[in-house]
Every structure is written in structure tokens, then in C-alpha cells.
């Protein structure tokens, strides 16, 4: 079981690195925001796997909060873009 959890964590970390490449390279601001949203979703998965690994269920509360923050960040960025953010950077 520990090996499986380690493999899962490695795969999710590779996913985080690939999303970070898109954050750095992304040609426009919406691309970066989408990449950050994927970032927060992947971190929720990582926290869930870590809760399984340690056996501490309270980490799931942290996962809820991270998901909420990612959603609010996406909504806030979208409002910022629609109300006269940078038109095309």
C-alpha cells in the first residue's frame, strides 16, 4: 500500500510540474488562471492521498478549504478580466 501511495504522489507531482510549465509559458492571462485552477485541484488530490498515508482524517478539511479557495480565485480572476483587465497580453 505504501508503494502505491508513493507512486500516486509521484504521478501527481509530475502533473503539478506540467501545470507549472503552463503557468510559466502561458501566452495569456486566462491560460495561467486555468493552470492555477488545475494546480489547486491537483493539490486537493495530493492532500487526500496524504490523509490516506498518515491516517489523519482532518486533512480532508484542509482539502475542502483548498478547493474553495481555488474556486474563489478563479471567479475573482474572471471578474477582474471582464471588468477591464489587460485586454491581450
Amino acid at each position: 500500500m505504501d508503494t502505491v501511495i508513493l507512486i500516486g504522489q509521484v504521478i501527481m507531482s509530475v502533473a503539478l510540474i506540467l501545470a507549472f510549465v503552463r503557468v510559466v509559458r502561458g501566452p495569456s492571462l486566462p491560460d495561467r488562471v486555468v493552470a492555477l485552477e488545475l494546480f489547486s485541484t491537483t493539490v486537493v488530490g495530493l492532500v487526500g492521498v496524504y490523509a490516506i498515508k498518515t491516517g489523519v482524517a482532518s486533512f480532508l478539511d484542509a482539502a475542502i478549504v483548498i478547493a474553495l479557495m481555488g474556486f474563489l480565485a478563479a471567479i475573482g480572476f474572471a471578474r477582474f478580466l471582464e471588468r477591464g483587465g489587460p485586454r491581450d497580453d
Binding site: 502533473a15 503539478l16 488545475l38 485541484t41 491537483t42 492521498v49
Partner: peptide, 8 residues
């Protein structure tokens, strides 16, 4: 984890 890798 593989689906998340697929997403990224």
C-alpha cells in the same frame, strides 16, 4: 493520479 496527469 493518472487522470490528473492526463489533465495536465
Amino acid at each position: 493520479a493518472l487522470f490528473m496527469l492526463l489533465a495536465s
